[in-house]
Design a protein around this nucleic acid. Structure first.
Lengths: 348, 348
DNA sequence: TAGACGCATGAATACGTATTCAATTCTACA
DNA sequence: TGTAGAATTGAATACGTATTCATGCGTCTA
């Protein structure tokens, strides 16, 4: 045997500090022992564990989660696909998601898909990063895309979309039912000339809310008097849509807005540009019940999406799917409720 | 023996689809060839690359980034430590950060540190996940913590903190200068009785803004008449602070608020509860220039933090530090500017 | 006291990739 | 046509960890 054994003087490992091998050497044990000292259920004597931990402290060793992920085939990372960061509803969602996931031992990897085609970019990336699961908001999967995740056995939950393809888990607020609630709220209080301001036309949430609203109107023998579209869920677009709507010859006496931000914009335009009083001259109903809807200058009556329940359910579904791969598809629909405040006139 | 040896017929790799070895086998080449086919600069003939890609398509193979990260010692993941998700300023920051990082080929791993001690949780996790770099907002590193990152050669940039310890990169808006601008704005327009409403007392941004404001007042022979503290940057706390401030016996004629949200709350309280006119009866200056500050019902005059420049600079610094480890510490201060709107009375 | 059994341990291996190294083929030029 | 040099290739190795397997040891029971 030609000894020499590739000397490689003090290589000291380039970047990630020290490894379990370094710790093992210093502690006078095997690398396996070091690994076991960090593995909860493993079989290690208190003595070697103590030796290991002493060496760990001396070297400032930290486990390399990437290496662990490679062998365990689990990263403890959840991918979160998101498109509307600055909208209050989604900002709160993001906050809740990251917090709740952390409490369950997961970290959140963000995929921003605001630009047009970025979903096609994000999904492969999520797969390549071996995320343990994926939450998709404001987007839908093609069946081909769903297949790819199925093949990788990576569970996906669609958040606030309801396009039952029988392939992807779904957790959504019942926007359709929410639209119906808005209709009832306005009809029960005696309004006659109803309008709807749409948000993003392509989004299924917007569509479901509108369908529910119109359907309920028809059921009760009414029909929609006026319709405007903001185009997206921004304040600015909402404000412009409100202007187009309210400056018509015969304006509505009540308007249901696709979300709270549009509703707030509508109230602002009505009050500051038209000097209308709310709710005396115009009733407004929103959707979401974001925190600012409760501000004293809005006091918005709105359809409440049950925030925490939506997020918790989504994570429940995802975690369960991670634990039991191949189980059947879960579809959960969460009911909204109506939060009564001061933006609807009661003139029965 | 009773056991049937648990045959495990076609193991087929449990989770992550197929590997380069599978591709190699199918294409009739070596695993190294497959790797090279995916490595931009590598030496592969067009012929083998074609064979590889054909096999890739057939198997639906995707590179495992985790494995790659292990050998390359680089994950292309940036950690982002964040505390205030729902505050408009930080919601926009998050949006910009994820977008800009993606454009440079990085993905964002979120560390939510809203609970008290979670920074101590997040930092080790970031190190264990081998992030290529870390951006920390609304928090500061202890020198011990900074040392840990230095040892791991993981660059850290503190965002909007200015605590020069000579150890961590820093990118910040000049909040001190911003406070001075607010003072000048109010004094130049002839206000006499000035007040300040603080945000989160412990935050360095709040402190710097106040020190700048007070310092400039003193320089010009004035002093602060009244001070209130919201306690944090929420609308609710701001509203309550405004109430305490404005219901005093001799209220101010102008108030500088630690951020736009507090300023908006102040305006709302003044108008809806006290029937004051703004700016005739009370002038208000905010800080940040978030989009909603421009809404027609606020038209808030405010100190603008140069949003895009802050984010871009932060990423520039981080990327440069990743490319040149061991280089000297970078500290970049970005100047704010004043956005004039309608919430300040001009009575010179 | 012998045997059975559980616990601790280290050597070896696997995870999926990039990269070094040596060997081979190809190209071009004289 | 021969050869230097470039281009291509596969075998081997490394990255840092978890885990299997066989072994050694001590303890308990009969």
């Amino acid at each position: 045997m030609t000894s020499t054994k590739t000397p490689h003087p003090s290589r000291k490992s380039a970047r990630s500090g020290s490894s379990q091998i370094d710790v093992a050497r210093l502690a006078g044990v095997s690398q396996a022992a070091v690994s076991r000292a960090f593995t909860p259920g493993a079989s290690v004597s208190d003595e070697t564990r103590a030796k290991v931990m002493a060496a760990v402290d001396e070297l400032g060793y930290r486990p390399n989660v990437i290496a662990r992920s490679l062998v365990q085939k689990s990263t403890n990372i959840i991918g979160l696909v998101l498109r509307r960061f600055t909208t209050p509803f989604y900002a709160h969602m993001l906050q809740k998601f990251t917090r709740a996931l952390q409490e369950r031992g997961y970290w959140t990897l963000i995929f921003n898909i605001e630009q047009g085609d970025e979903l096609d970019n994000a999904l492969p990336a999520a797969l390549q990063y071996q995320v343990d699961g994926l939450i998709i908001t404001s987007a839908t999967l093609s069946s081909h895309q769903a297949d790819e995740f199925a093949r990788a056995e990576t569970p996906v939950v669609l958040f606030n979309r309801y396009v039952s393809d029988g392939h992807t888990h779904l957790v959504s607020c019942d926007h359709y039912e929410g639209g119906r609630m808005a209709a009832d709220a306005l009809l029960d209080t005696g309004h006659q000339r109803l309008a709807y301001i749409a948000g993003e036309e392509e989004s299924s949430t917007n569509r479901d809310r509108e369908i529910g609203f119109l359907g309920r109107l028809k059921e009760r023998g009414y029909e929609l008097a006026l319709r405007e579209s903001a185009g997206d869920y921004s304040y600015k677009k909402g404000y412009a849509a409100a202007q187009r709507l309210l400056e018509r010859a015969s304006p509505p006496d009540a308007v249901f807005c696709a979300d709270d931000v549009i509703a707030m914009a509508t109230m602002d335009f009505a009050r500051y540009k038209l000097n209308l009083n709310i709710p005396e001259d115009l009733s407004v109903v929103g959707f979401d019940d974001i925190p600012s809807a409760a501000r004293p200058n809005y006091e918005l009556t709105t359809v409440r999406q049950p925030f925490n329940r939506l997020v918790d359910s989504t994570i429940d579904v995802l975690v369960e799917a991670i634990g039991a791969p191949g189980a059947s598809v879960i579809e959960k629909k969460v009911s909204p409720s109506l939060t009564w405040r001061q933006s609807v006139r009661k003139n029965d």
